[in-house]
Write a protein that binds this DNA or RNA. Structure first.
Length: 703
DNA sequence: GGCCCTCGAGTTCA
DNA sequence: CTCGAGGGCC
């Protein structure tokens, strides 16, 4: 490809163009599949430039579908997003029989059931990938992965290639029915497929779950079709009606509709029988033919599921009883210290690589200084052998089959001899690192001035739950920070003007440190511009104020509704004890959180950084507390004995309707719900002329 | 003051 | 996922 495009014969030009187009398309596919290493970016750019030159010289031969034409159109760099109408939550875990008994007790208490039996279903927990299938009038219309639980990826075309997934359900199916379940790959199929992959020189997967996940997320559905994926249906999301009043009834309906369901699912009224089933499934684990990592229990009655409702991240009516994790032994070769966003110094174990649960692990978290010393927060020993020494043989496992953890020292092996001295200065900036009394964590003391903390803060700023800037991930932040192009959040938004003014050069690296092209620079700047009007909650979260996570940021956003309202309230709280009290009075905010936010709004450095940032972005006002329920925004107190529900249930219900539930009557109380036996609170409420309702009246009010 | 629940922060590997 | 710690209840 050296001949001058102008002088090339049309036949030769056409042949070369065809070849180039094919290579570029292949490279695009490989890149987006992120499967196998392909040609370098430099070579890609050169080939593309050559094709463009040829097309310019021979416009009559140009193919309208040429890969050069896709420039300007959004790259097919992934799947479209689908917002789950009902969030796809994870389950809380039980590890012991006692945990399971606690789970059952908690349900009984929450529902005020007394001695009534709670029937539970039990089914194997498939180690695969969750998938949501939306059926309308029995016809499959959409399939989505779990994603972060709120938003997943649209993998409809891929799901249609799975033979276990019916395109059409049989029988009497509600108008809208979103079936949820697990996509998995059988062990035998996995072994055979991986052999194929080796033969073809393609990527080898570590375990069936990764293979299933990789297969489901292929951009080319024909590849998904070639993978032997299977599916079990066990749950549902958005539905117009339900075919039964119990968990087991709905799953039975699934089977009638033609969906595959797990044959080992059973219903139990007796806890011992339930646990026996757990042990039976555990015994069959190796002969099932597919990977499972525990047994899931669910409250069978759906009306009870409804009353139990949800905690912030998981339902109260289900739990996963996990099998004991696989352990592996390896040598502790050293301990590294990482500096987090808040300056926390976290020790990480450097291990001789070892395979655990099908994955090679060479690092593992050690949590904190005490953990290395082998003691808990109270100084009580947590492991035989005590303090970890470099050179020890340690046992590790992957917590939740993901995060490697060091558990214990293998005291049958020769012990290490080198003690680890926890640093008292920050390894990133040499500033003193101090451990406050009563705290487990040692922290670098200079905040944003520490380069490690600054980078972590910036990463947090652009991260998914925060500003979520497409194409500006951790790697890019590190690179831009190292080049001095981005040293604080506001710098992200001035990249374009600085580039236009010729002050900086962005044509340097992409995610992998390879040269960028005009297109990726344009994409990045457009993505940044698209984030100039963030939701208030995301914006507050992005600031990275200590103790203010996603939930608390949301709380502040709903409370103050505007950036102006929030920032002026926090500034005022710094100067006026009464204003501070008002912040502490917000339900869910205490002294520590309030002071952290106040300190942030009083700090000169952060004030200046925020001012610069506010010149670039404009957070959009949040919705005030929902107002469409009769109790929204009201402060409610429950007293006396509630006869139709427990205190916890009443509180959860009231809060879900936008009410604030308080424990004591004050002038701020709007409503007192008094059951039999109400005493001083009722008297106080009457004295204060606060509206008082019986439990029946309350239930009538909220419908 | 102690207990329970929830939230925040940090973590691995592909 | 896990641990530590904050917040709120008893």
């Amino acid at each position: 490809m050296t001949a001058d495009p102008e002088t090339l014969s049309p036949t030769a030009a056409k042949a070369e163009m065809k070849l180039l187009a094919a290579s570029l398309n292949a490279a695009n596919t490989a890149y987006h599949r992120a499967d196998t290493p392909e040609i370098s970016d430099a070579k890609y750019d050169a080939m593309k430039a050559r094709l463009q030159a040829l097309e310019a010289a021979h416009p009559d031969l140009s193919d309208p579908n040429s890969p050069t034409q896709s420039v300007g159109a959004p790259p097919a760099e992934g799947f479209t997003k689908i917002r789950h109408r009902v969030p796809m939550l994870s389950l809380s875990n039980a590890f012991t029989d006692e945990d399971v008994a606690d789970f059952a007790d908690q349900i009984r208490r929450f529902l005020s059931l007394g001695d009534e039996t709670v029937a539970l279903t039990a089914e194997p927990k498939i180690d695969g990938v969750s998938l949501a299938l939306r059926y309308e009038w029995g016809k499959l219309v959409e399939a989505a992965t779990r994603g972060d639980g709120a938003e997943g990826e649209n993998v409809t075309a891929n799901a249609r290639t799975i033979s276990d997934v019916p395109h059409q359900l049989d029988g009497d199916v509600p108008e809208v029915f979103e079936v949820r379940g697990e996509v998995y790959m059988a062990n035998a199929d996995f072994a055979a497929m991986n052999e194929d992959q080796v033969a073809k020189g393609e990527k080898v997967y570590a375990n069936p779950r990764n293979f299933a996940a990789g297969s489901l997320r292929q951009l080319d559905p024909s590849i998904t079709a070639s993978r032997p994926l299977k599916f079990f249906a066990y749950a549902w999301g958005d539905v117009s009606a339900l075919p039964a009043e119990t968990q087991s009834g709905v799953v039975a309906a699934f089977a009638d509709w033609g969906l595959p369901t797990n044959p080992l699912m059973q219903r139990f009224e007796d806890l011992d029988a339930l646990l026996a089933h757990y042990r039976s499934i555990e015994g069959q684990r190796s002969s099932l033919g597919y990977d499972i990592d525990g047994v899931v229990y669910k409250v069978d009655r759906l009306d009870w599921q409804g009353r139990l409702g949800f905690r912030s991240n998981n339902p109260r009516w289900a739990i996963a009883h996990k099998f004991p994790a696989e352990l592996a032994s390896t040598i502790l070769e050293g301990i590294d210290i990482q500096v987090g966003r808040t300056g926390a110094l976290s020790p990480v174990a450097r291990l001789a690589p070892v395979t655990v649960g099908g994955v090679v692990v060479s690092n593992a978290t050690l949590h904190n200084e005490d953990y290395i010393d082998g003691v808990d927060a109270n100084g009580a020993p947590i492991r035989e052998g005590g303090r970890l020494m470099i050179g020890d043989t340690v046992r590790i496992y992957r917590a939740g089959d993901v995060i490697p953890k060091v558990t214990e020292i293998d005291t049958t092996k020769p012990r290490g001899t080198v003690p680890f001295l926890f640093p008292e200065i920050c390894p990133a900036c040499d500033a003193p690192a101090v451990r406050d009394p009563g705290e487990a964590v040692r922290r670098c003391t200079i905040g944003f001035a520490c380069p490690a903390q600054a980078v972590e803060q910036l990463k947090h700023f652009v991260s998914r739950g925060a500003m979520d800037i497409d194409g500006l991930g951790a790697k890019q932040i590190e690179a831009f920070h190292a080049d001095g192009l981005i040293t604080e959040p506001a710098d992200i938004f001035t990249l374009r003007t600085r580039l236009d003014a010729g002050q900086i050069d962005l044509f340097r690296r992409d995610a992998k440190g390879r040269p960028t092209n005009q297109k990726s620079v344009d994409n990045l700047l457009d993505a940044i511009d698209a984030c100039r009007k963030p939701e208030l909650a995301r914006f507050i979260f992005a600031l990275g104020i200590r103790h203010v996570g996603e939930t608390t940021a949301g709380l502040f956003a709903r409370q103050f509704t505007s950036w102006q309202g929030f920032s002026s309230a926090m500034t005022a709280a710094g100067n006026d004890p009464e204003a501070r009290d008002q912040v502490v009075d917000i339900d869910g905010v205490g002294e520590v959180m309030a002071d952290a936010v106040i300190a942030f709004f009083a700090d000169e450095g952060s004030i200046a950084a925020m001012e610069r940032l506010m010149g670039e972005v404009a957070p959009v006002d949040a919705e005030a507390q929902s107002t469409d329920s009769p109790v929204a925004g009201k402060t409610v107190v429950f007293t006396g004995t509630l006869e139709q529900m427990s205190r916890a249930e009443a509180k959860a219900k009231a809060e879900s309707l936008g009410a604030k539930v308080s424990g004591s009557v004050s002038t701020k109380t709007d409503l007192l719900v008094a059951g039999p036996g109400a005493g001083s609170k009722l008297k106080k409420a009457t004295d204060l002329e606060i509206e008082t309702l019986t439990e029946e009246e309350w239930l009538a009010l909220i419908g």
